[in-house]
Nucleic acid binder design. Sequence first.
RNA 1: GGGGGUGUAGUUCAGUUUGGUUAGAACGCUUGCCUGUCACGCAAGAGGUCGCGAGUUCGAGUCUCGUCACUCCCGCCA
Length: 588
Amino acid sequence: MKRTHTCSQLRDTDIDQEVVLMGWVQHRRDHGGVVFIDLRDKNGITQIVFNPVISGNVHGKAQELRNEYVIGIRGKVAARPGDMRNPNMETGAIEILVEELKIFSQAKTPAFQIDERVDASETVRLQYRYLDLRRPQLKKNILDRHKATMAIRNYLDNNGFIDIETPFLTKSTPEGARDYLVPSRVNQGEFYALPQSPQLFKQLLMIAGFERYYQIVRCFRDEDLRADRQPEFTQIDMELSFVDEHEIMKIAEEMIRNLFKQVLGSDLALSFPQITYDEAIDRFGLDRPDLRFGLELCNVSDIVKDAGFKVFANMVKNGGLVKAINAKGCANFTRKQIDELTAFTSIYKAKGLAWIKIKEDQWQSPIAKFFTDDEKNALAQRLDLEPGDIVFFVADQPKITNEALGQLRNELGRRLELISDDVFEFIWVTQFPLFDYDETEKRYHSPHHPFTAPLETDIDKLTTAPLEIKSRAYDLVLNGIEIGGGSIRIHDTKLQEKVFNCLGIDNEEAQEKFGFLLEALASGAPPHGGIAFGLDRLMMILCKEDSIRNVIAFPKTQKATCLLTDAPSKAAPAQLQELAIKVSKIEG
RNA sequence: GGGGGUGUAGUUCAGUUUGGUUAGAACGCUUGCCUGUCACGCAAGAGGUCGCGAGUUCGAGUCUCGUCACUCCCGCCA
């Protein structure tokens, strides 16, 4: 028996053909006489019919069939009688009159129904992932992911990028995320680290002269999980020589546009808007603004700096920041809703959420009485206050004010249903700070990574004002989620050493940890830069999913376990002995 | 490390507020009937460690404490 067609192919133009289909029993409808079965394969579903008039033998055997049995059938394509056609099925005009049935394998009753209309908990879905992958939603996501990676490979190949593999068993790098370690048997007591990204290798490939590199590559970070974070995830990793940030962004845009065209058939704008980090923080409070709705933040520190409301005034005097959001037309928020929003902002360390409801004749608010008429007028003008509005204020240290109010903006967007997942709003965020200051460790720190180039105009601030230096780094943000980021790298040994020094890494330590990179940079390094996209996050948005688990074939749970294979698990004593590893339980 | 949610039949859930007879429903499953269904229909039936462990009580799915799993978030994630 040799398959002639898939279960999505046959139409009423194929009537009277003799065909062989193979697949899974999606559903069985036994009428005692005639038996209908929906046969499912990767591509679709076709109804097959067992009729005792055609073959009593085969009809009898069909009694054995149950859901998810795997079968092959030979039969003739027949038109369905006019009113028996199913307009909801692609193949609804025809059916197969079965003449021969082969049962390839029987199937236990599945743990959950293979039907998108029936829910199953994530626990049981992960445990029987191969069953969940049979269902339309996950199957479509995985197929779309394939389309996306094909679009990426085609685009990059057509533009001179070389796919080069880099090691998984590599060296632990300081800074950054916690590493996954792999013990070395041959070198007892020593460990490889799985790469958090191929960052240094792709720079070495530029120094090696490949000029354009890409890789769709697994990366590993041993940090706590989130809906959009798995311990192993996939990057579309790219690096280019002899280019500046504008060229890299242009190529990245074209690649993304190509991908959306191939996967969704939709046309994105020819270029994506750009915003500096400082402006993003100022207007949206976050470095990953969701542009699908307005509700921008408004700085009112100058207006309230002398106000009778001391919480605001003192905050400004002590270097704090007072910002506000006008939620247009939401003066009907209840006390309960306001309390919920207050609790929401407290997650992000805001000490309070002040509010004013704008009524026709007055301001209703616990704090309105503290403002002079001049201050009220200034606020009304700055915030475009009109009757029916409610305005929310956060007064705190700048980092907290921006974070809390930025998150509140997103929450309001969700609550007011201003956000559609049918819309794709891209934006580049540029000129990130080169350093931030780690209060606990009392030292500078790279928000991106220590190989990021500073703006040329800021280089002389390395010794005078490191925190004011802007970098040649850029992130691509889609619907409020960072889907990619990169930078122009430092290709000059001297500059790289200066940056290390700023980070508190002296020459000796730099030699020990990054000596191979410094050596390479000193061996003829072209100007270069690159970008890496989170494929899982990109697919999550494209597939309108809430979690990257739904675009990964075999994801892990929040405790980084695999419910299907039961990984991780204990190692056999002999394995540990070979590795010279002794496991001791660490007491809490 | 911290905060929130969930855990009852194979699956999804109700029941927990206010402790009390035999823990229900739907889907699925099994058996029988049924020749035009397509979430077929009809009839009958099986199916429960109420996550686990202590405790309170005459009595715990329900109350208390602990614990485990899944999940969302904070911290963390260059």
